[in-house]
């Protein structure tokens, strides 16, 4: 069996992410799932100009994502992170939904919180019908976010904060 059905270890997840996972885990109806994800996608806010302007740097581009998604992590004064996203493909609605999920679940937490998030968490939100190509892109968003958080965490550790 592949890893699609694997439940993430919720003990190490943020309470908000745990709560969102709980909600989505209970959805068996595809229509209801789609409706909830579209509602999330409708809340998408693009990266503010003080963080990034077009053309967005390649270092922030999600690999293997056909929706041309970008991710940034902003270190706030209290040591927590605020995550930002851009989705350049107008049809990238799943990427926009995933961005809102990650922002809601992880913004305002310390960098370590991102470390606990498994990349395949997207399958819990989007369901097992998620195509291989789409799953690849959404997992890429999580992977890049974790990498950016890790970089900031290491920088913080090096500076002794």
């Amino acid at each position: 069996m592949g890893q699609f059905g694997r439940a993430p270890d919720r003990k190490t997840l943020t309470p908000k992410l745990e709560e969102m996972l709980e909600i989505f885990s209970g959805i068996s109806d595809r229509g209801e799932r789609a409706e909830m994800l579209i509602e999330l996608a409708d809340q998408f806010k693009e990266v503010p100009e003080h963080i990034a302007r077009r053309p967005f740097p390649e270092a922030h581009r999600v690999q293997r994502c056909e929706s041309e998604a970008y991710v940034w992590a902003e270190l706030l004064a209290d040591g927590t992170l605020k995550y930002h996203f851009a989705v350049e493909n107008p049809q990238g609605i799943s990427a926009r939904a995933m961005a809102v999920i990650l922002d809601e679940a992880l913004s305002g937490t310390l960098p370590e919180a991102a470390e606990a998030v498994p990349a395949d968490i997207c399958f819990t939100f989007f369901g097992k019908e998620l195509s291989m190509g789409k799953g690849q892109g959404l997992m890429g968003m999580v992977t890049l976010l974790k990498g950016l958080a890790r970089q900031l965490q290491l920088a913080r550790e090096r500076s002794g904060q």
Partner: peptide, 21 residues
């Protein structure tokens, strides 16, 4: 491919045929 596209907006009158379902 993206299951969210049709319910998020489609050509008026169009129905969806899903390749998996």
């Amino acid at each position: 491919e993206d299951m969210l596209l049709y319910p998020s907006g489609h050509i008026p009158g169009a129905v969806q045929v899903d390749w998996t379902g």
